[in-house]
Structure formats: C-alpha cells, structure tokens
Write a protein that binds this DNA or RNA. Structure first.
Lengths: 204, 204
DNA sequence: TGCCGCATACCAACTGGTTGGTATGCTCGT
DNA sequence: ACGAGCATACCAACCAGTTGGTATGCGGCA
C-alpha cells in the first residue's frame, strides 16, 4: 500500500460528472479517462471492469453526499421537526441554488442497471436507503414530541421525504423551478402530518 | 401509406419493453428487432435512426398509457376530489397489481437522454406533462368545491401527484411494497390538503 | 547511508467483438 | 409494373478489455 493513487480518485470524481450527464450505459471508459486526465491502463489498473467502477462510483457518491449532509446546517435546530423541515429546505436549496451538480447520480444509475447489473443496483440501493436512514431518528423524535401516531412508519416517511423527484431533467433551464415546487409540496405534507395528530382516513 | 406496416407497431411495442428493462442507451437496435421478430432492414425502413425510434417510442407510450388512463374507472366518481384520490389509488394498483409492466418508460428515458438527445427529452416531457394535465380539471373543481385556496397551484399539484417515484427498481421482488407505501403518503397528502383549509387548523 | 528487490501506479498501442447504419434485392398487393 | 414492406449481407466506427512496458516509492539489509 503506497501513496497517492490519484488516478483512482480522479476517475471516481469524473464518473459522478459524466454519468450524471450521459447516463451510465452511454458513458464510455474513454470518456471517464479523458475527463479524469488519465489513460485506460490506469482505469483498468484500479477497476477490474466498467461495472466495478459503477459500484465504486455509487459508494463514492454516498460518501460525498453523506459528508455534505452531515455538515449541513439543518442539524442545528433544537426541535426535531424543525430539523426535518430544514432538511427538506436544504435539499430544495441544493436544486435551485448554485449547486446544480447535486442531482442524484445513483437514482439515474439504478434505473439503467437494475436489470443488468445487480451489483450496481444494490450499491445504489444502499446509498439511497442509507441516506434516508439519517432522517429516521429525527422523525421518530418529532412523532414522540408531538404525540403523532399516524398509521405510517417513520421509515417510509423518510424514504418518501428523501426521495429525489424523478424528472429533474425535464425543463432545461427555466423550467427547473418545477422541482422546487415539488419540494414545497413535500414540505407542506410534513407540516400537515404533524399539525394534525390523528390521521383518520377519509373513505375508501 | 396503405396496408399492414405491422413491423412498425411490433417495433414500438418491443421498444417499450426492452427500454424499460435495459434502459435506452443499453438497448441495441438488434435487441429491438429480435424482440419484435423483424430484421434490421425493417427497422431502418420505418425509423431513420435509433433516436428517431426513441421519440416515436415516447409518443407511443403516451398514446398507450393515455388510453389506459382514459378508460380507467376512477373517472366515474361524481365528486372531483374522489376522482383525484381514486386516480392515486389506481396508479398504486398498477404497481402492486398484476400489471407491473407499467413502470414509467419515459421517466427512464429522459434521465439518460436529457443531455444528449434533446428531441427524445422533449418527447418525454410532453408525455409526462401531458399526462399530468389530465388531472388539472379535477383538482381545480375540487378546490372550488371545498373552497380550498392554498398558496399552491393545481398544476404543480398535478405534476406532484402524477409523478412516478424514481426508485421503482430498488427492491426487486419483495421490497416493491415500498413504492406502494409512497403512494399512500401521496394519498394522505391530498386528503390533508383538502380536509384542512389552509388558514384554520382544526381538530380531528 | 546507499542500494536492491519488489509492489504499486500509470501509460501507449492494440484487438476482437459489437453496434448503428447502408446497399441491394425479394415479394406481394394494387 | 411499381412502390411499399421487409429481408440478407455487409461495413466502418466504436468500445471494453488486454498486453507489455515504464516510473516511482517503500521496506529491508549491508
């Protein structure tokens, strides 16, 4: 085990960018090498196949975004429900703010690979559900604080709240606001969930 | 202009299946021909390129699902809000019912093609927003009926309600229930929206 | 300290199978 | 007999993966 291994890191970072832009299948190994500024030899030295890079990229995405969310300011609110709402706002800010690079790479990958590359799919699943899990304590706490006992689980709520909207790429340019609006619907939903303790289903 | 042209239809139907399973980029022209039971000559006789088939497939998807939703029973409810809720239930039934073929093909395609094939992206966008538009009258009517005047638009609500969850493919087999649970969250959201006029929070 | 052995990091050129696309010809209804 | 629908045969470009090699650092031993 020696130092550096700088090409591997460059390739992983390049992968997040290229895969997001072109999709996984359309991304060639040469694309990745060009963006990373390394050669194919380096690529196959570090990854035994393109698919191996795929799972590594999903994990890399997890650690990158994990760090981003971990040091995000929404954890600072003393009230757990406020933390959840601030989380939603934080994700919305990622969308229309100056960081449009944060579209969900693993979400894109899983749609292309779920049937053909189970290992990549599993890596994406771990990334997504692992991220959703970071919310579950706050939601549990919020439910306890407010005495909310709906017929829904905190876990499913996390998955729901953590999920990225699938049609990020529809309105290039101007239309992107749509996604932010969706986040507002989600925020309103959470507010409503906790402002109205007993959720009685209306009718069939 | 005249008879048959059966290969074209077979190719379009094959495209919906193969693209859903493998993604657009990973789908080869030979795949499509094999599934359709025709040859490459037939393919390029009807479509001048693979991309041309892509946009045709998006439009085909629109007409197929459009017909499916148009004759769906949720239109029968007299109350517009009930129609919206029944629409949500209908879509959930599509997921865990015997028709799992109805995952969103255009949603998959747009993620792969938004940067590289603008024409396909636009065709997908028309398909998605066009579908969402079929809800807008019902939501408007429901808002009028119940005197709901939230600071949200019926249009954005349609897009939100019509949107498919992006991680359909995560839990192969058993785990698919997750998606149904998401639909339940969506249903509860719409119920809450219309049971609690924005300004006055009330009991039960 | 110096240098030897070796593993790791990386590179340039090549290959064999695949893929989108073409050129051409057959067939059948009108 | 003529064009539409479709098949067969083929090609050039592309792409994942290989081969064979160089460079650089590190531990150990004198």
């Amino acid at each position: 085990m020696s130092r550096t291994a700088v090409a591997k890191e460059k390739l992983l970072n390049a992968a997040l960018g290229v895969i997001r832009e072109k999709g996984y299948a359309a991304t060639t190994v040469d694309d990745l090498c060009a963006r990373a500024g390394v050669t194919k030899g380096a690529f196959f030295h570090h990854f035994k196949s393109k698919d191996a890079l795929g799972v590594a990229a999903a994990q890399h995405w997890s650690t990158v975004t994990g760090a981003l969310f971990e040091r995000a300011p929404y954890h600072d609110h003393p009230d757990p429900l406020d933390r959840v709402l601030a989380y939603i706002d934080f994700r919305r800010a990622l969308l229309d703010g100056a960081i449009p690079e944060v579209t969900c790479v693993v979400g894109t990958m899983v749609q292309e690979t779920y049937g053909q590359h189970p290992e990549i799919r599993d890596a994406c699943a771990m990334s997504i559900f692992g991220h959703a899990d970071t919310l579950v304590d706050d939601i549990h706490a919020a439910m306890r604080d407010r005495g909310v006992t709906g017929n829904w689980s905190a876990e499913s709520c996390c998955t729901y709240a953590g999920g990225a909207p699938g049609r990020l790429h529809l309105g290039q340019g101007e239309g992107d606001v749509d996604v932010a609006v969706e986040r507002e619907h989600l925020r309103r939903y959470v507010e409503l969930l906790f402002s109205q303790p007993v959720t009685a289903p209306r009718r069939q």
